[in-house]
Every structure is written in C-alpha cells, then in structure tokens.
C-alpha cells in the first residue's frame, strides 16, 4: 500500500483572455511509498508546482484523484505539510510563533506547544532566534523555519516546492544536509520539487523526471546511494553516473521547453 497515490491526475487551466487553455499537467500516475523521499525534477513551467498544489489540496485536479493513506484529498489540511517556493512565514509572528501556528490551530495546549517548538528550534539550529521576526532573518533561516513550521504539525507527508531555490550554493548545500538529516531520523514521507539535478539525486530515494509542458512523468529512477548520506557522496562515481543520466533526460526537455516558448 502506498502512502500517496496520484491516479490519472491532470490539470488544465482555463484560457486567459481568449487564448487556448493551458494544459499544465497531463494525466499523471505516481505512487509514493511510506518513508519515501521522492524528488520531482523538471524544467521551469512543466507543472511541478501545479502537481504539488494539487496534492496539498490548494487546487483541484481537472481529472483523476489523489489518495493519502487511502483517503481522497478534497482540500487543504494539516496532514500535508507544505513549504512554498516563495517565503511564506507570517511576518507578524516570531519564529517560535510561526512554528507553533499549526499546533495552535489544532488546539494543542500551550505547554505542549512550547515543548515542540523548542525541539524544532534546536533541530534547525535557530534556538537563539526564537523571538525574531521573519524580516530579521536571512532567506536560509526563513526556509528552515518554514520547514520546522510544517513538520511541527507532524504531517503524514511533507511537500516542498523548490524551498532552496533562492539560496546561494553553499547555504543550499547545508540546507540539503539539514533536511536529509531530519528525514533520516524522523522517517517522513517527502515529495520535493526541484530543478537542480544534484539536489534531486542527493536527497532522493527516487527521482521522478517530468517532461516539458504539458507536464507528465517521463522517468522514475531509484537512487540507491547509502544512508546516512554525507555531502562527499556528490563526488562518488555512482552519483556522477546518475547525474550524467539525469542531465541527459533533462536536457532533452529543456530544449523542448525553450523551443515551446
């Protein structure tokens, strides 16, 4: 039994001002097992965000259905944690209050909330920043907080939409290790969208490659690199072989995408 089942899901956006409708996502099938870390790799505009928003319940599929723990997704909910491509911390709440947002909404008592928040602050290395406002944080700190905010809710699945897309390379690498460390310890199911090939391989237990628009899944490649993974794995021959293969897959799509625009 898979944790998440995406069955025949497609999304067509209605035409904008007399144009043609946008087929953002072709009918797609994807099964994500318990504790899987699936990365979705694809060129810009191929429907990655669209797919993730459908799973999050923030958008409704044109066809097909999505099952989480065998129950159909009908709208957004606390069982799916989401980290967005843009910075979405609540600017009027401190780091600690942001992390506690979902717990408060669930009615978790204050003492328990405090405990969970303290744990997550420590895991993301922001204990000293508990009462800072988002504006006072760097981009990397904000995304770490956003991850903690999603995970503090203890969701069945974590959805991440290019969470490190706006960060510099060094910070990005550190964030990847942090996230991977959390996943190795917490055994979460993760769906992670990216257009960075190295990131996709380093984090994943499976890489799903999407084609250029209209998006569909064109390859599904398991990553058997051992855990716990260290950043040095990025220089191993296995990693390079995977990278070469994915680069080839993606290049074809990028060329198509460029021609299509």
């Amino acid at each position: 039994m898979s944790k998440l089942a995406i069955e025949n899901v497609s999304r067509v956006f209605p035409p904008v001002r007399g144009g043609a409708p946008t087929r953002a996502l072709e009918p797609t099938h994807l099964a994500v097992g318990d504790n899987d870390f699936v990365t979705i790799l694809g060129p810009s505009g191929c429907g990655k965000s669209t797919l993730l928003r459908l799973v999050a319940g923030l958008d409704t599929p044109t066809t097909g259905r999505i099952l989480l723990n065998a129950r159909p997704v009908t709208g957004p909910g606390a069982d799916r944690g989401m980290v967005f491509q843009s910075y979405t911390l609540f600017p009027w709440l401190t780091v600690a209050e942001n992390i506690a947002f979902g717990l408060r909404e669930k009615g978790v008592p204050a003492a328990k909330r405090k405990e969970v928040v303290a744990t997550w602050l420590e895991r993301i290395g922001l204990t000293g920043f508990a009462s800072h406002y988002p504006k006072q944080l760097s981009g990397g700190m904000q995304q770490r907080t956003a991850i903690a905010r999603a995970l503090a809710n203890d969701p069945a699945i974590l959805l991440l939409d290019e969470p490190f897309g706006a960060l510099d390379n060094q910070t990005r690498a550190l964030m990847q290790e942090l996230l991977l460390g959390i996943w190795e310890r917490e055994a979460k199911t993760v769906l992670f969208v990216t257009h960075d090939i190295e990131e996709a391989i380093f984090l994943a237990s499976r890489v799903v490659v999407m084609s250029a628009r209209p998006g569909r899944i064109k390859a599904d490649i398991p990553v058997d690199l051992p855990h716990p993974r260290h950043y040095t794995v990025k220089t191993s021959p296995e990693f390079s072989a995977l990278k070469a293969r994915l680069t080839e897959e993606i290049r074809v799509e990028a060329v198509l995408a460029a021609e299509g625009h």
Binding site: L58, G77, A78, S86, F90, W92, L93, G102, E105, A150
Partner: peptide, 29 residues
Amino acid sequence: IRRDLVEAALALGARDRGILGRVLIPAAA
C-alpha cells in the same frame, strides 16, 4: 493580503475562522 500566506495557513490546517482571525486581520492591521 498575500494569497500565499492564506495558503500557508490552510496547509497548516487553519479553518475559516483561523484564516480570518489569525491571518487576514493581523496581516491587514
């Protein structure tokens, strides 16, 4: 009010009242 903040709150399990009281009003204050 930024739509993505509302969506973030929805994804954290907020209902209508939570969206109004804990996102829209503080963001607009």
